[in-house]
Amino acid sequence: MTDLPTTTDKKLGLVIDLDTCVGCHACVISCKGWNTENYGAPLSDQRPYGEEPMGTFLNRVHSYEVKAEGQAAQTVHFPKSCLHCENAPCVTVCPTGASYKRKEDGIVLVNEQSCIGCGLCAWACPYGARELDQEEGVMKKCTLCVDRIYNENLPEEDRQPACVRTCPAGARHFGDFADPESNVSILTAERGGMDLMPELDTAPVNKYLPPRLKDSFDDESILAPFLDPVAEETQGFMGWLDKQLSRLPGDTKTQSEDV
């Protein structure tokens, strides 16, 4: 049944650090690479080398600009995948029971053998985390790499979602939000991790860390004192050489004399 579990034993999810994400899209590629050949139907592409190529992706990176009055604009790269919401609206709308949220770890999954491809779950998701595969006609979404994180055939360091494993900036973190001592819980508490569109009451598990505030043009630079010349007068051998060379004619005029 597509009832949501009232509580889940674990709350597995991601923390995405908007401060350190550099927008390289490596997570997009590693996600597509892993998930096209593992859990469920492959992630198809349409016209990959033709006009208007499109394809199924479980993770996409947007780029935004934030501009406050009187401040420099800031670019924020914004990876977005399924947030594995506690009140997942995508699950309850499913007519066949194909969409479900696991009681043991809170991961939201699609049983592709039961999916009729009606698309209603994608309509119910505010975040655009679900995409109907145009080739297979079934709904695809982030599985939190459920086939990696428990996979004992993989080396231990690889037992995390492909996007987290590949991120060169360390902007993605995987863990259990139900455990207040986990890396993701601590990061969320320390950095003010936030929900996307909290007004829709979906209670997302994934959290986003806001970018740290940047310097302003008016700030006194803490490095300025170190830029003062260390020695005003040249001394020693170089000082003697400077004096002797200055005596010879043909020095280029300095700018101040020129003007």
Binding site: L18, H25, V28, F57, R60, V61, H62, S63, Y64, E65, V66, K67, A68, E69, Q71, Q74, T75, V76, F78, M194, D195, L196, Y208, P210, P211
Partner: peptide, 15 residues
């Protein structure tokens, strides 16, 4: 995006 309290947010580039 959760960034609304910092200023005006606009889309720079689609994925």
């Amino acid at each position: 995006t959760g960034l609304g309290d910092r200023g005006e947010v606009r889309s720079l580039a689609h994925p």
